[in-house]
Design a protein around this nucleic acid. Structure first.
Lengths: 99, 99
DNA sequence: GTGGGATTTCGACATGCATCGAATTGTGTG
DNA sequence: CACACAATTCGATGCATGTCGAAATCCCAC
């Protein structure tokens, strides 16, 4: 596996972040992460195949929304909520609170 | 010109709204509308052709973000900020405040 | 009605993206 | 080492989208 890249908070763009969240599957993933804290890839409840889920997680990670840390043969995914809050105050939290 | 369709506030979806905002040109349009109130099509400052701008305005309108009213041979575009605020509190305002 | 300006629509094109199954890589265990 | 499991990557496919110029539509003034 190649090294995981996490963009610096300052380099996260608003259109990039909004684009990552403008997808049903990815929005669902982010919501699940907000509730459950760290989640392993295979435990997400999404209506797509494993390879598609992996693609979405990559998009979210490269947009700066996720932090991924290997744990043995698993990978732990965490929402970078506090960091996004400093970058774009209120945006992610209000999206998470939306019905 | 066919009749203009404006979706009801209740039928606006979060992914739909975020998708409409996840574009540099459209985000710029929304920002200009937030500052200037009603703006006529030809007065937007965007780096695309007139036909492309028209396409983006249509996307924004169909996403529920804009209200378009004919005024003579012009069209007045207004941001549906208050309505969006009742639908998804804080989302659009925090996006507009983001740097 | 004729003309002109504002805006949209109509192809057309290139690009991007969500999706899948199969193959691959990585990690721990027997 | 060999095997099983987790996750990614690859290759392919179909669909959506951003972009343009040209043509069409709409509205007002003359």
């Amino acid at each position: 596996m190649r090294a995981l890249h996490h963009p610096d908070v300052a380099s996260v763009t608003l259109p990039g972040m909004l684009n990552a969240l403008a997808d049903e599957v990815r929005l669902s993933v982010v919501r699940q992460l907000a509730e459950a804290g760290g989640v392993v890839c295979g435990q997400f409840d999404v209506p797509v195949s494993m390879s598609t889920l992996s693609h979405h997680l990559k998009v979210l990670r490269e947009a700066g929304l996720l932090r991924v840390t290997p744990e043995g043969s698993f990978r732990r995914h965490e929402l970078r909520l506090a960091e996004m809050e400093t970058r774009f105050p209120g945006v992610l939290t209000s999206i998470l609170q939306a019905a």
